[in-house]
């Protein structure tokens, strides 16, 4: 029988906490970056210019239809060779994960925008607002409220996806967990602890999102 011994983790508490900090920071950064990219792509998808629509669609499909792991590796190893720019593992990870998240956010944001009654932008136009102003003041605030649960769900996935940056030796929770596991010869305890840490953060968030979704359903 395997003797579980979680007490060994105490010695690695700072290492693991550091990793957790990196994971949280990475998620925050790529959610922000992803939202910026997603918003831009969504606006392009709704543009009246065909080139912008085509460009946004191409971008979204490339990132949605390939594995994140490959995107990470590609950004780090291939992109510098092709474009001739040096990137640290952190920059490459931020770039890949933001683009990946952004391609999913884009669809959510586009859907949220088109779900708003066209009467709203008509009323805004009739008051003399330009399309850009109407988007910013009238359409987006309503659309964002409606799509918040979907955006949060995507961000929860994003939180888990950050675990892949460990392949580029970015010291996130999973990477530090690997170090602790090798060092202590206690991989089961270490990875269990890592899983518990993810769960304790994500479970309350999913509960919160579910509650919001329900309230949104009632409001309709």
């Amino acid at each position: 029988m395997y003797e579980w011994d979680f007490s060994i983790l105490w010695g690695y508490r700072w290492l693991l906490l550091q990793g957790l900090g990196v994971t949280v920071a990475f998620t925050a950064a790529t959610v922000v970056g992803g939202l910026a990219i997603g918003m831009t792509a969504a606006i392009c998808l709704l543009s009246r210019f065909r080139i912008l629509r085509g460009f946004a669609l191409g971008f979204i499909e490339v990132f949605r239809c390939t594995p994140v792991l490959v995107q990470l590796i590609w950004c780090y190893y291939a992109l510098p060779m092709i474009a001739g720019i040096e990137m640290t593992p952190i920059t490459a990870s931020l770039l890949a994960l933001s683009c990946y998240g952004g391609s999913f956010y884009a669809e959510i944001i586009r859907g949220g925008i088109v779900s708003i009654d066209p009467g709203q932008s008509e009323a805004a136009s009739a008051l003399g607002m330009t399309p850009a102003l109407a988007m910013r003041r009238i359409i987006l605030p309503q659309a964002l409220r409606r799509m918040l649960p979907a955006l949060m769900n995507q961000s929860i996935l994003q939180f888990k996806n950050t675990s892949l940056v460990s392949v580029l030796a970015v010291p996130d929770l999973v990477y530090q967990g690997q170090i602790a596991a090798h060092d202590s010869f206690r991989p089961l305890e270490t990875y269990s602890a890592v899983a518990v840490a993810y769960f304790m953060i994500l479970f309350p968030l999913t509960l919160y999102v579910r509650r919001r979704e329900r309230r949104l359903g009632e409001a309709r």
Partner: peptide
């Protein structure tokens, strides 16, 4: 166009108030 529309007010059958 936007500047022109400030000269006219319009009221719609479906109100179209901004709900937020």
């Amino acid at each position: 166009l936007a500047a022109f529309r400030t000269r006219t007010g319009m009221v719609f059958q479906s109100f179209n108030l901004f709900p937020h």
